[in-house]
Simulated assay, not measured.
Amino acid sequence: MTKILIVDDEHMILEVLEAYFEKEGWQIFLAKNGVEALKKIKENAPDIVILDLMLPDISGEEVCRLTRKESDVPILMLTAKSAEEDLINGIVIGADDYVTKPFSPREVVIRAKAILRRVKKIGIANKLSFNHGDMNIDLAKKVVDIGGNSVILTPIEYKLLVGMASYPGRVYSRADLLDKVQEGGAYVEGYERSVDTHIKNLRKKVEADSRHPVYVLTVFGMGYKFGGTPDAFDTTF
């Protein structure tokens, strides 16, 4: 059974979304503030979190940041903020998608299902393929090829590439990427800026023209993101 945590301080919103997701047969957990949300994320390990930005104790943005330090659980943000900068910031700190208030409960259900389908495909895929087969990543063998040619990457470069390619379009700060390459005890010398050097070396290996990258893109003032367009996932590779 799919588990979902809905976080909002408005009782009516909790009640309505709970009713809609109950119809889908999901197991539902509710939280009315940030502290309660963080506790329930740890205790119940939901498959997805619907998170309001305006909470009475700590902000939804902070809940998202703290969650991302320990978990990749998909997060769908609910926000009354419609300014482009605010919405981009939500994606930068780790949200997978957002819905602006007022919203249709049915739209929230559809977006939550779409996020979980995407995550499930990534989880079961043995191969990631992008730009009509130009880039292929064999996750089992840890092999990358570009245009049919194998590319030799260092362990750190490989982790950076797979980390970003698993969520195309998501913006990662240097700190986010540093956390990814340090998983499992991998060592990264220096500070967050050392990520820039690894990104530069990665681009030289995977881009036809590193000055005009297609896959490893800089988001100025924010960090980096993967720009490849996913092909159909191959689960039999």
Rank of each mutant, 00 (worst) to 15 (best):
K3I: 06
L5T: 09
I6L: 10
D9L: 03
F21C: 10
E22H: 10
G25H: 09
G25W: 08
I28R: 06
F29E: 15
F29C: 15
K32C: 02
N33S: 13
E36Q: 13
A37N: 11
A37T: 06
L38D: 04
E43N: 06
V49L: 09
I50E: 04
L51W: 07
D52V: 10
D52L: 09
L53E: 02
I58M: 10
V63H: 06
R65I: 13
L66C: 03
L66N: 05
T67H: 13
R68V: 10
S71Y: 06
P74E: 10
L76E: 01
M77Y: 04
L78Y: 05
T79H: 04
A80C: 09
A80M: 11
K81H: 15
K81S: 13
A83N: 11
A83P: 00
D86W: 05
D86P: 01
L87E: 02
L87Y: 09
N89A: 14
D96E: 15
Y98E: 08
V99N: 07
V108Q: 06
I110N: 08
R111D: 09
A114N: 14
I115E: 05
L116C: 08
R118A: 13
K120V: 07
I122K: 13
G123M: 07
I124L: 10
N126K: 15
K127T: 13
F130W: 11
N131M: 03
N131G: 09
G133W: 10
M135F: 03
L139F: 12
L139G: 04
A140W: 00
V143A: 11
I146W: 03
I146E: 01
G147T: 02
G148S: 09
I152Q: 01
I152H: 01
L153C: 03
I156P: 01
I156M: 08
E157W: 04
K159E: 15
K159P: 02
L161W: 05
G163A: 14
A165E: 01
S166Q: 14
G169V: 00
R170L: 12
R174P: 11
R174W: 12
D179L: 06
D179C: 04
D179M: 14
K180L: 15
E183G: 10
E183F: 07
G184T: 07
A186N: 14
Y187D: 11
E189P: 06
G190R: 03
V195T: 12
V195R: 02
D196Q: 08
H198M: 00
I199Y: 03
N201T: 08
V206N: 01
A208R: 11
S210G: 00
H212F: 13
P213M: 11
V214A: 11
V214N: 07
Y215K: 00
Y215H: 04
T218C: 03
F220I: 03
G221E: 00
G223Q: 07
G223L: 12
G223K: 02
Y224R: 10
Y224A: 08
K225I: 00
F226R: 05
G227N: 05
G228W: 00
A232R: 08
F233Q: 04
T236G: 06
F237K: 08
F237W: 07
